[in-house]
Amino acid sequence: MAKYGFFLGCIMPLRYPGIESSTREVMDALGVELVDMQGASCCPAPGVMRSFDQTYWMSVAARNLVIAQKMGVDVLTICNGCFDTLFEVAHKLNHDPEMRKKVNKILKEAGVDEYQGNVNVRHFVELLYKDVGVEAVRAKAKSGKGMKAAVHYGCHFLKPSNIKKIDDAERPHIFDDIVEAAGVTSVPFKDKGTCCGAGGGVRARTPDVALKMTKENLMNMQAAGAEVIVDCCPFCHLQYDAGQAQLKEFGIPVLHLSQLLGMAFGLDKAKLGLEVHQTKVNL
């Protein structure tokens, strides 16, 4: 059984814990063992923290990587933001000895072990596609109800593609393939692949601007007949879920892929944590 350090981040465990319980159950069903990373912190968030001070951002991220290093595992995340920070920092530190030296000096002073530069960071959609396989997902899926889904990749799962090298950044398919394996139809829609609007600190600083971007995406999803939005990031999830409540229109339920798979695998509905969603989920 493949084993990974499960990086929780902030929004999932604290605002949508149903994504966490679904992920744990779904990964277990698919034979992926998740081990807790005791004492991990915020990744830290690429929007505000990288914008403020890149040395601090890298050092806090490196401390999280050291936790996985001690456990002898690679990191698994279900959040595009955590993935962006941890992947990018691991990439920088694994390839640039000078930068690693600089960060390790800070870690040492803070009483943290040296980072050796060997931890890899995986996004769960990529892991499902490449390691677990679409057929394994299809074999477990009992009912997908044939719903029409707008699949939202978000930005930081695939981009920047020059370092992530996961799928084509403009015409990706791996997330759609998993959703379809769960018995759900992924519908094409205008400007699919556009940012939800929340990233880069825009949601915190100018929520009205973020919401305008969200609204345009929602209009395109609705025009395509989407009955559900499926995301692979708790921050995009929050933006679509809370955004629709604020806009007081659309009402398209939002599911994180882990919740969709949980549903398709026939998990106890109470384990999906859907009652905290601000846009009602009647699926």
Partner: peptide
Amino acid sequence: RLGLQNTPPTVFSDPKALEQVKKI
């Protein structure tokens, strides 16, 4: 209610780890 640890197994349940983050 979801069967998860009430306090996540992060810095929230590990004061020593939080000290390291603060120190950084």
